[in-house]
Nucleic acid binder design. Structure first.
Lengths: 335, 335
DNA sequence: GTGAAAGCGCTAACAC
DNA sequence: GTGTTAGCGCTTTCAC
C-alpha cells in the first residue's frame, strides 16, 4: 500500500480511502491512486485490515455433522442466504459426529477470529466454549440444546412431530409399530422416542422395547435392521423411521412388501413424491432452520445479549396417496 | 501476547514459541507461560500470525453454484475430506449462477488471502482471475473448462455419458426422444447435447429440434415442459433429462403414465432405487470429483505448476428393473 | 535457551 | 481534502 502511495505520490491514508471506497477524496487524486493500483497490481489484504483492535474477520463458522446429508446442507444454504447479504463468509466444517473433531474444529475457527458460530452440537458438553464466549465469541446452537454455554438455540419440534406421526400410524390400526433410529444419546432421538411412547400410551397400546431398533447409521444399516424385524415370528406392521437415512433404509427393505405395511419418517425427502410406496413424512423447512439460526446470530452480532430459543414446527406430509403433482396433503401441524 | 509475557516474566518470543509448540524452551519456562496464558485467557490470533510476508491463511475457497443441490454438496464434501487433513478451512460460497455474484465472491475470497480456490465457473470468461493468479493464487476449475486463465481442470465425461444414455434409449426402440436441459450456454449442457446428437446420427435417427427443450431450471419447470411435450400430437416416447432437477421434473410429470415411456437422466439420485418407475441414470462419484479437485489444488500448493486436466468417467446405472436391494446393474462405462 | 527490535499491511486519530 | 503517526498481534531475524 505504501508502494502505491509513493507511486501515486500521495499519502498512505488516501490510498486506503480510495481502496475502501470511502468518501472525501478528490476525483483526480482517486484516479491517480487507481492508476497506481493497476500498475503495481496491488491487492488489498483483508486480513491485515481486520487486525485492528477488537475487529473481526467478517466471517462466521458453521459446524455441522456431515456435508453429505441434505439436512445439513439445507441448513448451510439457509445460513448462507442471510450471511451473504451482510458480506460475511461462511467457513463450513463437518464434525462427522466426532466430539473430539468437533472440539478441534470449533477451537480452530475461534483462533481464526470468526465473529460468530453456528453449531450443530455433537459433544454433550460444550463447556470448553464458554471461555471463548466470555472473550466475545457469539454462538448459536442448532438442532440440539447444549449445556454449559451461553448462546441462542434453534430447535425442531421433535416431540410434536413424532406424536403426529405416531397418531397417524395408530389411526391406521397399527399396534405393532417398529421404530428405527440413531443413537439414543442424541437429544433429537430421545425426543422423538418420547413423543412416540407418549402417543402409544395415550392410545393404550403397549410399548414393546423389542420393536425399537436404535443404532443403525447408514441406509444400508437400516435396511438390514428392517429385514431382521420383518423376519421375526411376530413382525411389526408399521415403521416409524427417525431420520432420512432410516426412512430410505426401511423403504429399501420394504420394496418387495405390499402396501399394508405403513411407513412414517422424520425429515423431508425431496423425491418422496416419486416413490413406489406411499409415505408420511414429518417435514419442516431445513433451510428455514438455517435462516433462523443465522438471523439470531446476526442479531447477536448487532448487540443483543439476552439468550433466545426458537422452536420450528413440523408438518406431517403424505406422499403418494394421490399421485398428482402438487397435491401433498398437509395433515396436521405439530404445534 | 505481550501481557502474557509480562505476566510470566518472560520475553515475547518465548510466549510465541510455547503457544506454537516450538522446540527450544525449557519446561519450567513453558509452564510459567502456560499458566499465564490460562490466567489471562489468552487466545492466539491466527490472523495476525498469518500476516507475515507472503504467508497465507491456511484456507481455501470453494465457489459452487448452489448449496442446495446435492451435486455441489457432494463436491464440497469431497473437497473437505482432503483439505481437512491438511488443516485448511474451507470457505464456501454459492454463485447462484450469477456471473456478477461469482466474480464478487471470488474477488472477496482473494482479498481474504485464501491459499487456493476451487471454482465451478459460471462466468464464460475468467480473465479477471489471471491477475490474482499471477500474484500467487492457485486455482482449480471444476465441472467446466474456463478460458483465459491458468489453472487445473476437473471435468466429467459429459459427452460419453450422454452417448451411453442415448444408446440405451435407442436400443429400446425409441426414435422420438425428448431432451430436457438447462441453458445451452453452459458447457456441460452443450457436451451432453453433442453426445446425444452424435449417437442419433450414428443410428440414422433424425434429430428433431422440436423435441429439445432447453431452459427449465427447477423440477417444476421441467415437469411443465414435459407435460407440454406429451400433450403434442406427436409426443416423444422417451426422455433424456440432462441433470438431476430435470430428471425429477420429468418423472413427476410422468407419474400417471405407463412404463412404455423410458427415461434416462444425468446425475445420480440417491433414492432412485425407490422410485415407482424404472430409470437409467448417468452416474459418477460427485464426491470423488471434489476429492480430485482438492488433490490437484494441494499439489499446486505444494509447488506443482504444470497445468493438469482430469476427466472423471461416468457409468449408466439402471434402477428399478429388478427391485432388489443392491442389484443396480452397471451397464456400460462411458470410457 | 532467550529476548529485543523490526516489521507484516492495514486502519484510526489526529493534525495539517 | 489530505498526510502523519501510532498501533493491531504476531513472527522473524539476530544478538545475547
Amino acid at each position: 500500500m505504501l508502494d502505491v502511495a509513493r507511486e501515486a505520490g500521495v499519502g498512505l491514508k488516501s490510498v486506503s480511502r480510495v481502496v475502501n471506497g470511502e468518501s472525501g477524496v478528490s476525483p483526480e487524486l482517486a484516479d491517480r491512486v487507481l492508476e497506481a493500483v493497476a500498475r503495481l497490481g496491488f491487492r488489498r489484504n483483508a486480513m491485515a485490515g481486520n487486525l485492528r483492535a477488537g475487529r473481526t474477520a467478517a466471517s462466521i463458522g458453521l459446524v455441522i455433522e456431515d456435508l453429505g446429508n441434505p439436512f445439513y446442507t439445507a441448513i448451510a444454504r439457509g445460513v448462507e442466504q442471510l450471511t451473504y447479504e451482510r458480506d460475511f463468509v461462511m467457513m463450513t466444517a463437518s464434525s462427522e459426529e466426532d466430539p473430539e473433531r468437533e472440539r478441534a474444529l470449533i477451537l480452530d475457527l475461534c483462533h481464526r477470529r470468526v465473529d460468530g458460530m453456528i453449531i450443530v452440537p455433537t459433544s454433550l458438553d460444550h463447556g470448553f466454549l464458554q471461555p471463548e464466549i466470555d472473550l466475545g465469541l457469539q454462538a448459536v446452537f442448532l438442532d440440539r440444546p447444549v449445556s454449559g454455554v451461553d448462546g441462542d438455540v434453534v430447535l425442531l419440534d421433535n416431540r410434536g412431530g413424532a406424536e403426529v406421526a405416531t397418531d397417524y400410524l395408530l389411526s391406521r390400526g397399527h399396534t405393532r409399530i417398529a421404530v428405527l433410529g440413531h443413537d439414543a444419546k442424541v437429544w433429537t432421538m430421545r425426543e422423538r422416542l418420547a413423543g412416540f411412547r407418549a402417543r402409544l400410551a395415550r392410545a393404550g397400546v403397549p410399548y414393546d422395547d423389542n420393536l425399537v431398533c436404535l443404532g443403525p447409521i447408514t441406509p444400508d444399516d437400516a435396511a438390514q435392521a428392517t429385514a431382521d424385524l420383518l423376519a421375526r415370528d411376530d413382525p411389526p406392521t408399521a415403521f416409524l423411521a427417525c431420520n432420512n437415512r432410516m426412512t430410505v433404509g426401511v423403504l429399501t427393505a420394504l420394496r418387495r412388501h405390499g402396501p399394508e405395511i405403513d411407513v412414517a419418517g422424520f425429515d423431508d425427502i425431496e423425491t418422496a413424491g416419486l416413490f413406489a410406496r406411499p409415505l408420511a413424512l414429518v417435514s419442516y423447512d431445513a433451510t428455514e432452520l438455517g435462516r433462523r439460526a443465522a438471523a439470531l446470530l446476526l442479531e447477536r452480532l448487532d448487540g443483543r445479549r439476552t439468550p433466545q430459543q426458537v422452536v420450528v414446527p413440523t408438518v406431517l406430509v403424505h406422499y403418494g396417496d394421490e399421485p398428482v403433482a402438487g397435491t401433498n396433503t398437509k395433515v396436521r401441524r405439530s404445534r
